[in-house]
Design a protein around this nucleic acid. Structure first.
Lengths: 339, 339
DNA sequence: TGCCTACGCTAAAGCGCATTAGCTACCCGC
DNA sequence: GCGGGTAGCTAATGCGCTTTAGCGTAGGCA
């Protein structure tokens, strides 16, 4: 590999054209102050020499860093939700790069680490704003970000203290869609295998589930998990071993659902003949499985796009609502059947 | 949200302590030139005021950007391989952040776009090096990067023209593991549902498969796909409709495998009783499915770590081999059975 | 006592750009 | 013919940091 070329600077352009740096700068930034003729010459030479502004220099001279950050703390969710996040990232990324923004991405192992990263990014003036997700009960991040004064958007709110603007999916509505569908198809004993209860969206879903299924809750109605395959199996087993076996089980995501279907089968139960199954998260797996899984759909790519757009508006001080919601839809497949 | 605090600068620290900026800089960068006493005071004040060096300023003053880039061009693979990439990213990320490096992540829709991104990052001096992946036949990226002089590591080589250092998985060995296992378990008519043939690793796998399975190839032995669920189904159907039906089918990844199992079942064939199935890629799905899928394992997280380490060595001009290989292993599960 | 070195520090330059103030020539209107 | 405005440019400053050169003082050694 050849040594990295020393890149041409603005001064190089200017001296080669016999003009001042400022003139060149004006030309390149499409600013008044130079003749069309000069502008043309500068642009041509810049193209020829493959000149591009030094990012750090530009940044230092007052232009913003044109970068936003995305931190993701993953622990128990190690094996779940993977496709969700990459698709979220995809969506956010496409909006950002369209507007010339870069995305600095970091994964951390704990919330403390995440706070440290956010602080560093902010202090170093490395990012103009950040995207965060997975708010938990008592989460320190909203207050922390507010104190830093770092623009931030929560992917998946709402923030109970309203410190953070967010793009959320209407979890209650999602649950209602599911329960309504199950009711309409004649199910009378519903159960829910949820994620970790300290995740706020899980908390909301549980509440919504209990409310929507009020008259038709199996016992136990809700069993929590850490999103792992093992706990998905265990929770499902617990439900079917109970005196009042459910005729439909809702799973918080597709990983749990897949585990659940397996557990049901190995207990001699058929899906959907004996028990119907619904996943709160859709993905290729839900479609590919046999039986294919009825699921709530919320396109993570579109979601990511909305989050990125919101963050950019925030960064540019454009007026906007604090909370933005996406409507989920339900896709009915083979895993739920009329009773 | 409060306005973003104006951060303290080095000068602020210096004047408040009655010393020069240089002294403060020496202290903060752990350089000789200041007394221990002064160093202590500077560090204490920096901590108190939550001072951190302005990233762009540091960069401009000669320190590198402490950033590496990762571009990913995705097209037909839209629905496949998602977990693989996020795990690759996870691994790379952990190594990078441990050493204080940031990761700039971008997805593009075409190779041309990707080239443009690479060029811009290089010209703007925004990254010190990049990670790329998914080399295709006649891929312009190695030569392009060599010309830019931008340090780069290929995740998943090798580069046939040897322009790019890489961390690769031994695809031929992986295929040999699979075919050996199938032979040992008595399979005699092997088939392979591959990915797109213009991906070099797919090309290598096909060649290795044909060679390893030479005496026991079904007809047709190999059917290509674009990694989509639909083509996975179609390819599988094509195989079982052929005169010489395979007794084992190898799928290029878990998405295809899941599609394949479905296609086999809906044709009235049982897995593994009638046909065995192997996936060239492992993931939670392979474990969770029923039957669980025999698969080749290559931990993408470890892979990502190796890639990042290699890139950092490259960036720091540390000597290292051009090609690094990871040994795959095979995990035998329920989807393959002794015949 | 005198010289040399080491230490602890300061002053100044420079990284590559954007921006502001200023300067010159020119054209316009009266 | 003159004042005032404007187009087109240059010079200079600053962004926040690192680094080099330089400077004074104190201590070591002969």
């Amino acid at each position: 590999m050849p040594p990295r070329r020393t890149r041409p600077t603005l001064k190089d352009l200017a001296t080669r054209l016999g003009i001042s740096e400022s003139a060149a700068s004006f030309a390149l930034n499409n600013r008044p102050g130079v003749s069309e003729e000069t502008r043309r010459r500068v642009l041509a030479l810049a193209k020829e020499l493959q000149w591009a502004p030094h990012h750090a220099a530009r940044n230092l001279a007052g232009i913003t860093s044109m970068t936003v950050g995305f931190v993701l703390t993953r622990d128990v969710q190690e094996f779940g939700m993977e496709s969700f996040y990459l698709r979220l990232l995809t969506g956010a990324q496409s909006v950002l790069s369209d507007r010339g923004y870069g995305l600095l991405f970091q994964m951390t192992r704990s919330v403390d680490e995440e706070l440290a990263v956010l602080r560093r990014w902010s202090e170093e003036r490395r990012v103009e704003g950040v995207i965060i997700s997975d708010l938990r009960r008592g989460d320190p991040r909203p207050a922390f970000l507010a104190e830093l004064g770092l623009p931030a958007v929560l992917a998946g709110g709402p923030d109970p203290k309203k410190l953070l603007p967010c793009v959320m999916v209407d979890d209650a509505e999602a649950m209602r869609l599911i329960v309504d569908h199950l009711h309409q198809t004649g199910h009378r004993r519903l159960a829910y295998v949820s994620g970790p209860g300290d995740l706020l969206h899980v908390h909301r879903r549980i509440a919504a589930f209990k409310q929507a299924a009020a008259g038709s809750l199996a016992t136990p109605g809700v069993v929590g998990t850490d999103y792992s395959d093992e706990q998905g199996v265990a929770a499902t087993r617990q439900l079917i071993d109970a005196s009042e076996r459910p005729d439909a089980v809702v799973f918080d995501n597709e990983v749990l659902a897949v585990a659940g279907v397996r557990a049901l089968r190995s207990a001699g139960l058929s899906v959907p003949a004996d028990v119907s199954v619904v996943s709160c998260e859709d993905s290729a797996i839900c479609m590919a499985l046999q039986p294919s899984l009825t699921a709530v759909q919320r396109d993570p790519t579109v979601f990511g796009e909305a989050v990125a757009r919101k963050l950019l508006r925030l960064v540019h001080d454009e007026p906007e609502p604090a909370v933005e919601a996406q409507q989920p839809t339900i896709v009915i497949r083979e895993s739920t059947r009329q009773r």
